[in-house]
Every structure is written in structure tokens, then in C-alpha cells.
Nucleic acid binder design. Structure first.
Lengths: 199, 199
DNA sequence: CGGATATTTGACGAATCTCAATAGGCGTGG
DNA sequence: CCACGCCTATTGAGATTCGTCAAATATCCG
């Protein structure tokens, strides 16, 4: 096990490569995504401090992973992990808990992608970043947006343009304030929650 | 642990109820879904012979489950499961494997919902049913469709009408043959795979 | 400072949704 | 056995949301 430091916008591993390592995000932010043969991309999650990465029991990675910013990772060789599991059953329970949590998040994202409008998706996304801010001990109405508009679009199943237009719309309705591309204030959390409609 | 028999179109459990049982589908078919407050629904998966159901490590179910047809389930009380896990670490590995598999399926579904066209979604769906048929020892080009058009729509993030129109389109292009609402032949698997584009 | 890249904005078009009508299946009861 | 009614699926026409293409603006970084 070793700690590694990763520069912004670096590939960490690629889908269908042999899954040699498992990671834990210590600091920074990571996106994970799958590609279609013609180049369309779906980002299936963003990972932050404390999240597990590459947690598969297949022989190959099921998705690609890339850093959004300078990021610190703990790396375990996977073959060591397997023997470790036999020694520490407690760890296995933690992994099962993590997988269960990820699964619940994946199902929420399916609801978002299958049934929510662009406005609802963007509101849900901003509230997700608000929860991340909270987890990091920041005020929940002041968010950092470490990903590009393209990343947001590929996460929400929208185009860059729709993401941008919806942000502008929220801004002009006084729901948010954009400090710059990467930083925003949520001026009306209640209204955003209303829009997001997440059961 | 007991085996229970469930009639078609019966609720098995409801989202946010205390998760008292874990199930294994022995026979039949089950849909699992989440609702938005205004009644929109997203079906997050269909389960068949051998699939685990209600596999959560939260105290409440994360989704509702309903039978599509007459279905047989194995039921475990969850509190017994937890002590069982301590005795049989092997079981925990199987559950972790199942969770990992479900997670991979969830990510594929996110790609479908976020980035695929109606045609691509329907082709992917028909091929999924083809794999189910194979798993059941049936020819892979003769599928049973145990769910309604509404279910298909809520699974693929489409409306009933779009599902129906796309089926008609496939039929008129000689890709499929509809025996009745619930049964079809896939006349050109290669073409459907081409359309589905699943990386 | 300046070129490259990312974001915003605008005009238009297309895929899918909505609403409405029709057709088909299936069970019940006459 | 047929007729009726109910429910689901299909088909059609028009509306709408979001995507596409294009241009302008802003931002980043050497």
C-alpha cells in the first residue's frame, strides 16, 4: 500500500484494463466513466475524500477513472487485497457497505437520467455538490465545481449547452450566484430541493 | 428461511419500509423501481432466476419490488443473515460478488439512460431478454417479454408510445417478429447488436 | 500579450413526449 | 358461443424539450 499524488486531468486507469489496484481517494476529486464505441461518454460517478475507487471483483476495470484536480490516492495491489480479506473479515463488511452505498447512489442516478428534466437534473447536481461541501466541513450553500461543463453534461445525460443554459436560468431566477466557472453560491436551497424533486 | 409463492403483479416490498427480509428469486420475474413524488417511476432492474433481491445494508429498502408473473422466492430474515455472515465468510464473498455484478449492470444502465437513443435502448433491452432466455436454456433468438409496455418504458426512460413505435419499426425492418405482446423472435441478432452499440 | 480552450448565447431542427383516437385481447356474463 | 366492457397496445398529429450547429465571449496559461 502506498500513497500516490496525481496531477489534474490524468488518467488513473482505463476501462477493460486488468484491474491491478484498488484505490481510496484521500484528497481531491475523480470522475469515473464509460465510453460508447462512437465516442459518447457517460460519467457514472464523481468520487471525493474517503470514496473507494476500482472496487471490482472482476479481473478488469469496468470503467475508466480520471482526476479532476490534484488528487491523493491510497493504492493497494489487488492480489494483496484478496489475501487481506481472508485475514480481516471486518474489512469485507466495510467493502460490502461501500458497495451497497454505491448501488443506492447508482439507482438514484438512474431515476435522474431516466425520468428527470434538465432543470431537475441540474438542481439535483448542485445539491449533490452541496452535500460534498458539507462533508468537507464547508457551508452547504457555497459549492466548488471542480468539473468542466462537458463533465457535468456527460454525468447528467445533457449537452454542454443545456448545462450552461440551465445554469444561466438558475442565476437569472436568483437561485444561484456564479462567482466563477468553478465556484458558486446556492442562494435558495429550498427552491433547488423543490426543483430536484428527489423523492 | 422459507420458500414463498407469489402471484403475478403483487407488491413484494415497498421503498423505505424496514428491510426485514432478503430474497433470492427461484423462479419467475420481478421488477424493482423507485418513484418520484409526482408519480414518475424508474424501474432500476428486472430480476430472474438466481438473482438476489433486497440486498441492502441499510435498515430500509431502497426501492420497491413487484412480481411480473407467478414467482417463487427464497426468503431469509435479515437479522439471521447478519449472524450467518459471521459464521460463513464465504457467503459474504458471494454477496460481494453479487453486489459488484449489480453495480456493473447499474453502470451499463446509466450509459443507456444518459447517452443512448430510443432505438439503441430498445435494441439493448431485447438483447438483455435474449441473454435471459439463454440463461434459462432457451434459444437466444426466441424471447419472452414478461413485462408490460409501461414497465419497459419506465425501465428505458421512454414513454409507452415510443416503446411501441420502436417495436413496430423493428418489426417492419425485419429485425424482430412479434408472436404476441409477450413473445417475440429476434430475426437478426447481429443487426440488433449493431444498433445497441453497447461498447 | 496572445493563442488555445472552455463557456455562453442564439437560431434552428429533430427526437421524443403529449394528447387523442383506434384497435386488439381477455374475461365475464348473458 | 357471442356480446360487452375493460385494459393494454398501437397509431396519428401536434407540441415541446433538448440537441445541433454556429458565432461570440470569457478564461486559462505559456
Amino acid at each position: 500500500m502506498s500513497t500516490i499524488l496525481i496531477k489534474p486531468h490524468r488518467l488513473i486507469f482505463v476501462e477493460s484494463e486488468p484491474a491491478e489496484n484498488v484505490f481510496n481517494v484521500t484528497d481531491g476529486a475523480v470522475k469515473i466513466y464509460k465510453m460508447l464505441p462512437d465516442g459518447r461518454r457517460q460519467i457514472t460517478g464523481f468520487l471525493f475524500h474517503g470514496d473507494f475507487l476500482g472496487l471490482v471483483f472482476n479481473e478488469t476495470y469496468a470503467y475508466s477513472a480520471e482526476s479532476l484536480m490534484q488528487t491523493k490516492l491510497c493504492r493497494f495491489p489487488r492480489h494483496k487485497l484478496e489475501s487481506l480479506l481472508n485475514e480481516l473479515p471486518k474489512l469485507e463488511q466495510r467493502l460490502l457497505g461501500a458497495a451497497s452505498h454505491e448501488l443506492a447512489a447508482a439507482q438514484d442516478q438512474m431515476v435522474l437520467l431516466g425520468r428527470k428534466s434538465a432543470r431537475e437534473r441540474m438542481a439535483s447536481f448542485l445539491l449533490m455538490l452541496s452535500k460534498v461541501a458539507e462533508r468537507h466541513g464547508q457551508p452547504d450553500n457555497s459549492i466548488v465545481i471542480p468539473m468542466s461543463r462537458a463533465d457535468i453534461g456527460d454525468y447528467l445525460g445533457l449537452t454542454i449547452e443545456t448545462v450552461s443554459r440551465t445554469m444561466t436560468q438558475f442565476k437569472s431566477q436568483g437561485l444561484i450566484e456564479l462567482l466563477d466557472d468553478k465556484q458558486a453560491k446556492l442562494l435558495n436551497l429550498a427552491a433547488l430541493q423543490e426543483i430536484a424533486m428527489s423523492a
